[in-house]
């Protein structure tokens, strides 16, 4: 069992949990992920590591409540435990040769972009962060990002915070203004990563994206997380999750990630029943 030691609601849909997992904390690096399972009946769900504390032996995850499992996880409180927490999985992000970088985060993807910015900042690289959200209500990690970046650009779709526009608008503007980035790291919804990659392609800037396909084991056994990169089949769990954004078939990934849409909707309904049952059991 893995105990929750800290919990924060970052916005109405996004939760931060700090979880005791000393073995994982000891080895975790930016870009790697964990797989959690809330209880015996839950799915195995991968989440990229947002932060870790080797001394405390804790790992922080930040996630959006989207399906049944993330809702169950978000319902856990400090002091409670979850059944399984395995990691660190995947290959850590490779930073060699990066002296100036644009880190682009979209929505809850900022949670994963944050450790990237932090690691690069620590390595002495110049870090420009572009963070995009739909509106001001869901902005997360603003102070944290500012602390680990040289320039922080906040973008919202409706202009209620920062500048109005998409992250790609700002990225293009910065590149056009003469910023010479050694790499762009883009983490967020698949369409955002796709369009960031399309934006950087004409300039030939190396673009790293962190993919989030459906997974089960996370060790290269099930093949569920296969993605097409440069025309080849790669397994995000052992070959990734980082890939060259200019080579990823994003449309295929988006299609594959939609496989359980129908079941997800049904499960969310049954989730309400299960939460009620849990509450009932607690009262008993």
């Amino acid at each position: 069992m893995f105990r929750i030691v800290n919990k924060k609601e970052l916005n109405s849909a996004v939760t931060l949990l700090e979880i005791e997992a000393p073995f994982v904390a000891k080895k975790a690096q930016a870009g790697q992920f964990i797989i959690f399972r809330v209880d015996e009946f839950s799915e195995r769900v991968p989440l990229t590591i947002a932060d870790y504390d080797r001394e405390k032996g804790t790992v922080t995850i930040i996630f959006q409540k989207v399906g049944l499992s993330t809702n169950l996880l978000a319902a856990k409180e400090v002091g409670e435990s979850i059944r399984d927490f395995v990691g660190p999985l995947g290959i850590a992000t490779e930073y060699e040769g990066i002296k100036k970088v644009a880190v682009v985060g979209g929505g809850v993807g900022c949670a994963i972009a944050y450790p990237q910015a932090k690691a690069l900042h620590k390595l002495g690289a110049q870090v420009d962060v572009i963070a995009g959200f739909r509106n001001k209500d869901i902005v997360i990690l603003e102070d944290e990002m500012k602390a680990v970046s040289d320039n922080y650009y906040l973008m919202t779709d409706d202009g209620t915070a920062g500048e109005k526009g998409f992250v790609t608008d700002k990225l293009k503007e910065l590149i056009e203004a003469g910023n010479q980035y050694d790499a762009v790291i883009a983490i967020g919804p698949i369409p955002m990563m796709k369009f960031v990659s399309l934006t950087t392609k004409p300039y030939g800037i190396k673009t790293i994206v962190s993919l989030n396909p459906i997974m089960i084991d996370g060790t290269g056994m099930c093949g569920c997380c296969r993605v097409t990169v440069g025309g080849e089949t790669r397994f995000a769990c052992v070959d990734g999750p980082d890939f060259d954004g200019h080579l990823v078939d994003f449309d295929e990934l988006m299609n594959r990630n939609s496989i359980y849409k129908e079941q997800e909707a049904q499960m969310k309904e049954s989730h309400v029943c299960r939460m009620e049952k849990l509450a009932h059991d607690l009262i008993q």
Partner: peptide, 8 residues
């Protein structure tokens, strides 16, 4: 939950 080669 111990993936050897990764965690150790």
């Amino acid at each position: 939950n111990m993936v050897i080669g990764k965690v150790l």
